[in-house]
Amino acid sequence: MLEWKTWTETARFHSPLLNGELDEQVIEVRRDPLTGHQSIYNAALEGKTAILFPPTDEAYLEERAAATEASCFLCHGRWQTTTPAYPEELIPGGRIVRGEAVLFPNLFPLSAHHAVVMVGERHHRHLDDFPEDLLADALAAALDFVKACAEKTPTVRYFTVNANYLFPAGASVIHPHLQILGSVEPGTHHRLLLDASRAYRERTGRCYWDDLAAAERTEKVRHIAQMERVHWMAAFSPMGVNEILAVVPGAATFLEWTEEDVRAVARGLQHVLAGFHALGFSTFNFSCYGGPLGESGGSFATVLRIVNRQNVTPHYRTDDYYFQKLLKNEIMIMRPEALAEHMRRFFA
């Protein structure tokens, strides 16, 4: 039922890199089966990867981590006096604590409910050093918050769990953290996913995300692993660099996650981050989208997207320009099938 739409275009020009000879470059275009999002791959860009995404300057990263730790409001227990607290009627005690994970309000909220989760006490971690237990505690704290909001403020129905890691990914602090957004209406891409999923259900009588997981598992080229009921795969038409997609079939909202789901997502994230680290990346964004609380209908499943961002260097260039920001396309520096093959080693 899914259409993997792909086509090619050819660019021809006389290239100074070939002493003026005619160069022909084949451009592969992919269109997402649900949203129509387009991604573009040009094999010639493989030679520019080091220019587009220069390697992390480890010395600079360590220097910035050391310089910011002294003033970090989360480090060395400072969060106990420097972070805000929720009203008792929403969150008893004002904050949610799970192991080393601590949830509290964002001082500058972007929605009715905007929480931050401190992910551990350590100020900086490399991507191959995010333990499953730590990630599970952070995700569990986020779910505790969603459950509390669902009970106390039922009109706030649309939730996402998100992360920016390091400043090229938009983080204002180096210390690892998550952000949970809860609003009365879904955000732009969240709405697109929900609307397109409903339309697919009305057209086919099936859940797109069930069909996607089944199709990718059958084709095997982009499917990475299944952990409990969570499927991990490389996105066919990625929205960002090295996008990995996770789908939790049967869990349309965060309220339907089980302890096993939390563990499976945490374990998968640990493996994905380790795989990113092995590719030489140091930053990421992820967003996990839940269906509207209190609504059933069989059209949605919880979906997580995680992508790399530009590496940490003193003068890094943005990886998000007109092509992504305004045309809403994406450039693939690695074919999803090759990315999936790389990631399977870390899930083995």
Rank of each mutant, 00 (worst) to 15 (best):
A163V: 10
T313L: 02
V26I: 14
H231L: 00
F286I: 03
R263T: 13
R344L: 09
D261L: 01
R201H: 11
E202K: 11
A213T: 04
V173M: 07
L269F: 08
Y60G: 09
F347A: 06
Y60Q: 14
E9P: 05
N285F: 00
A251C: 15
E243S: 08
L269C: 11
T6K: 15
H114L: 04
L18S: 13
F284D: 05
E256L: 12
L304N: 01
D137F: 03
A171M: 09
G297L: 07
F276K: 04
P33F: 08
A85R: 11
I224L: 08
A214E: 13
I333M: 11
L2I: 11
Y158K: 06
V307A: 07
Y41G: 08
A101C: 05
K220Y: 08
F300W: 07
L103Q: 06
V97C: 02
L110R: 13
A266T: 09
V161F: 12
A140T: 07
R191Y: 06
R305E: 00
V247Y: 02
E58C: 03
A251F: 12
T10K: 14
E228C: 10
P54D: 02
I27D: 01
R30Q: 08
P92R: 04
K5V: 07
A66R: 05
M332P: 00
M332C: 12
A196H: 07
T82K: 15
L17P: 06
P154D: 12
N164F: 08
L103P: 01
I333H: 04
P105S: 02
F276V: 00
Q25C: 09
D319K: 09
A44C: 14
P109Y: 02
L273H: 05
G280P: 05
G170S: 10
I180M: 10
A85H: 09
V102M: 01
H231Q: 06
P109C: 13
C75H: 05
E219V: 06
M334D: 10
K328A: 13
E330I: 03
L279K: 04
I180A: 03
V307F: 08
M239V: 06
P16R: 12
L192H: 00
E228P: 00
G99W: 00
L304T: 11
P33S: 06
Y200Q: 05
T8V: 15
R191N: 03
E28F: 11
E341A: 15
E28H: 10
L2D: 05
P33R: 09
D23F: 14
T258R: 09
D32P: 04
E3V: 15
H271S: 12
H177M: 10
Y321W: 15
T204F: 01
T302S: 13
H189T: 03
W4H: 14
G47C: 06
E3M: 15
L279H: 07
D133G: 10
D195Q: 13
A266I: 01
V161M: 14
F281R: 03
A171I: 00
N106Q: 04
H113Y: 12
I27Y: 08
R345S: 11
A199T: 10
M332S: 02
R305Y: 04
L326E: 12
G182A: 03
Y60M: 12
Y321N: 13
A101P: 02
L22H: 14
L139V: 12
